[in-house]
Computed example of a mutant assay.
Amino acid sequence: MIPNLNWTKAAAAVDAAAEVLIVTHVSPDGDAIGSLVGLGNALIERGKRPDLAVDGGVPDYLRFLPGADAVLDELPAKTWDVMISVDASDEGRTGIAGEIGRANSRLVINLDHHATNTGFGQIHLVDPMAVSTSEVIARWLIAIEQPIIPSIAQPLLTGLVTDTIGFRTSNVRPETLDLARLLMAAGASLQTIMARTLNSKPYKALMLWRSAMQHIALEDGIISSDIPLSDLHAAGYDEPTDADFVSLLIQVDEAVIAAVFKETPDSAVELSLRSKPGYDVSVVAFALGGGGHRQAAGATVNGTLAEVRKRVMPLLRTAVEQGKLVNS
C-alpha cells in the first residue's frame, strides 16, 4: 500500500470546521488512545473544541494521559462538520461511535497506519510505513507547523512506545527514534510512559494469565491459548481481553506465531495474533475480516471457541509455511 498523505487538504478541512469529532477503534490500545487525545489536544491548540469518543471509554491504565478525562464512551445527538477516524483500518473497527459519527458528519478523514486499511473516508492520511498512528499525527503536525507542547507530546509518544513494544518491533527505523527524541524534547516523559504501560499490570491480569496457562498448546510453531468467558469473569474482567497474554506467548523460543482465542458474550471469538519477524499474521486477520500489522493483528470471528479454532488454525499453519524467521 502506497502512503496517502494529504497533509494540507486535511488541515484545511479541520481549520474550516466548526464541529470536529475524533473516534478510534473498539478495545483501544495505547496507540488508539494516544492518537485520540494527542490529536484532540493539538486541535484545542488550533482553537477547536473537538468531541473525542471511543466505545467503552478509556482503559484505566491510559487515564494518566492529558485529555483522557474528556473522552466520551457514547456520543450525544449532534452533527459534525468533520469526523477524524484514528488508528482504525476499517469502518467497523470504530464501533458504535464511528457509526454514529459517519452518519452525522459531512466529511470523514481516515488517519491510520495499517497496511490493511480499506481506504474509507474522503481524505486520507494513511501511511503503512509508520510504526504507529501517533507517528502519522506527529508528522502531520510538523508538516503544518503546529507547535507540539507537552499535552500533545505525551500521548503521541505513548502511541509510539506501545505499538513498537518499547521500540522492539521490526518496523522501527532510525526516524522512529528521531521522532521519539523530538517528543521527549517537547516534554513527553518516556519513563512515565514505560512505567504506566509496558511495565504495569493489575493483579487480575495475573489471575487471567494463570487460567490461560492451563489452555496453552504448542504445535507446528504456533503457540495458542483459549480464554473462555468463565475464566474472564473469574479473574474480574467484564469485557473480553487477554491482558496482553499473547505478547508473553510469542516470547517462547519454539514458537513463531502466537494466538489467543477470547470468547465473547455475543457468540463470537476475539482473536489476538502476534508473530516473530519474517511471519505475517495480518494476512490471516484480514482473511477473517480483521486487520493489523505483519507482527500484530486481530479479528472477531463468529462461532464457538472450538469452531473458530478449527477455522483459524489452518490459516496460521499456512502463515508459518510461507514465512521465514528474520534474525536481524
Score class of each variant (00 low, 15 high):
D87M: 06
G98T: 10
S85N: 09
G67R: 07
L43W: 13
L62G: 07
G38K: 12
G47V: 07
W80P: 08
T79D: 14
D73C: 11
N41C: 13
A88Y: 01
L36H: 10
D87L: 07
D73P: 11
E74R: 15
D90M: 15
R49L: 07
N41P: 11
L65P: 06
S85T: 14
I96N: 13
V71C: 08
F64S: 00
A70H: 11
D73E: 14
S35M: 05
D51W: 12
P59V: 01
D73F: 09
D55W: 00
D60C: 03
A77Y: 05
E74L: 08
G95R: 12
G98N: 11
G95W: 08
A97G: 09
D60G: 12
F64T: 00
I44Y: 05
P59D: 06
L43R: 14
I84D: 04
D51R: 13
R46T: 00
G92H: 01
F64P: 00
L62M: 14
E45H: 15
A77E: 15
A42P: 05
D81V: 10
M83V: 14
I44E: 15
T94N: 03
L75G: 07
R49D: 12
R49A: 13
R63H: 09
K48L: 10
P66T: 01
A42R: 04
S35A: 14
L62C: 04
K48W: 08
A68E: 03
L75V: 10
L65S: 05
D69H: 12
L43M: 13
A97P: 10
P50A: 11
R46V: 00
V54F: 05
V58W: 03
R49T: 12
F64M: 00
I96V: 13
P59E: 03
W80I: 07
V82G: 08
P66Y: 01
A97C: 15
D51Q: 12
L65E: 03
P59L: 04
I44K: 15
A88E: 03
S89M: 02
I44A: 14
R49K: 13
G57T: 11
V71L: 09
R49S: 14
R93N: 03
D60Y: 06
T79F: 09
P59K: 05
D69I: 02
L43V: 03
A88C: 10
A53Y: 01
I33L: 07
P76W: 01
A70K: 15
E91Y: 04
T79H: 15
V54N: 10
S89Q: 11
G98F: 06
D81N: 13
D87E: 11
D73R: 13
T94Q: 05
L36P: 10
D69G: 14
R63D: 04
T79Y: 07
P66C: 02
P76R: 06
G57N: 08
V58F: 02
D90L: 11
R46C: 01
M83Q: 13
E45V: 08
S89R: 10
D87R: 12
R63W: 03
L75R: 06
G56R: 01
V54T: 13
T94R: 06
A68T: 02
G56L: 00
I33K: 07
A70I: 10
A68F: 01
L43Q: 10
G57Q: 07
V54M: 09
L65T: 07
P50N: 12
D87C: 09
R46S: 06
W80F: 07
V54H: 09
D73L: 06
G47M: 12
S85L: 00
T79S: 15
D60I: 11
A88I: 00
G47K: 14
